[in-house]
Amino acid sequence: MKRMIIHLLLGLVFILLQTTLFPRFLGNGPRPDLVLILTLYLGIHEQPFQGALTSWLLGCLLDVLSGTTFGLYGLILLLVFCATVIGGRQLNRDNAAVMFFAAILGTAAHDVLLVTTLLFFADADQGWLIVLRQLPLQLIFNLLAVLAVTPFLNRTKAPKPLSLLRTTR
C-alpha cells in the first residue's frame, strides 16, 4: 500500500512535468511519456494486482489533464500493464536492458491501443495520423526517459525476501 501511494505521487509529479516543464522546451509535439515508463516499470517489478490498480489510477490521473474523455488512458495503461506482466515475467528482471526493451515495445503497444480505442469508440477521424507521425520521435524520447528515470524508480522497488537471499547465498 505504501509503495502504491509512492508510485501514485510519483505519477502526479511526472504528469506535472509533462504538462508544464517539457512543453516549454519541446513545444506541443512529442515529449517523454514518463507515466508510460512508470507503468512499464510496474509491469516488470510490481505485484500483478497492485500494479494493475496503480496503473489504472495513474491513467485516470492522466485523463484529468489530457485528452477529452475521462477513462481513456486508464484503460490504455491498464492494458499496457497487462501486456508487460505477461511478456516481462519471462525475462531477467534485474537486467537493465529489459526496461529499454519494454520501452520500445510499450511505446508501440501504447500507440496501437490508443489508435484502436479512438477508432473503435470515439470519433477521432484522422487522429491516428498524428499518433503515427509522432511515433519515431516519441520512441527516442521514451528511451531517453528510461535512462533518466529508472535510477529513481529502482529506489521504490520492493526489497527481496530474506529467504530468497539465503538460498542464493
Partner: peptide, 9 residues
C-alpha cells in the same frame, strides 16, 4: 498555465 499531459491531444 499548462498544456496537455500527452503528445497526442
Amino acid at each position: 498555465i499548462a498544456v496537455d499531459a500527452s503528445s497526442w491531444f
